[in-house]
Amino acid sequence: MNLAIETKKLTKTYKTSSGMQSVVKDLDLEVEKGEIFGFLGPNGAGKTTTIKILLGIIDGTSGEANVLGRPAGDIESHKRLSYLPEKPYYYEHMTGLEITQFYASLFGIKDKELCVNLLNRVNLGNDYNRPISQYSKGMQQRVGLAQSLLNDPELLFLDEPTGGLDPIAHIEIRDLILKFRDEGRTVFISSHELSDVERICDRVAIINKGEMVHQGRLDDLLSGGRIEVTADGVPENLADKFKGDDMTLSLRAGRLIADLPDTMSPNEMIDAIRTSGGSVVSVIPRRKRLEDLFLESVSGDNLAKGRVTGKMTDDKKADTKEEEVSS
């Protein structure tokens, strides 16, 4: 298999006042080249720690981590990857162009035109000559994306790339990420924006408390959807005919609402409804959503603590949690 990222039994343990605590436990991660990979988990699940290990910023306690065929942190692989951190900060006295040129210099690139082209590519327009301190969050994120493209990377690590952006910036950056894949790059996204992940990722991994819960292609992980059939004028005795373990039926005043697994064909039920004089109002296939899978994966602990809510963008808490553990 052609892997951009591979970890085997990767573990990271910290010494805390209450003893040793594993932030990442026996993590086996496989990210194929050329795909958009979503790395999900509730706050404090170990996502940032894993990314830091993959970037060589911290070392794993045990196990193996390889990035682009080399051990994580290898300086040669750093020439072929890039990283956009969550809530990036830039030296505020510099302009967008100066920041991009600074990061370019770290690769030994002196090409000003390349920097300008990249800033244009991320739609920063003529604002690149203004100081960063005057930039909106979306503009700063664009600068971040521009700097992440300087070395024409094979692999991009994007930590919450659309977090906190307005809808227009959100869509633009999401489209850019899709273009990165079209260009043959591998994109590793850590995000709480489940709708984005579901829309753009080929494969995902969900971790909880440092352990892998799910990993695979979205289509496979989200299989097992439901079909909802609604009909009017259905006689009472028809409901008994279709009762089953994996099906729910409700029949009131002639209105039937049936919820059946997508592995079961609705044709038999539709035919029976018509034969009995009823009329089918709607047949709606409901695909399992990533949010459902995510909630299933983390239910029982984080959900109960109220840490999984809505779009789960309480990033600050995530940082605090992980930093607490780190210290």
Partner: peptide
Amino acid sequence: RTIYTILSKPV
């Protein structure tokens, strides 16, 4: 976190 962006480059 500027250090993360810098150290993720060949530095």
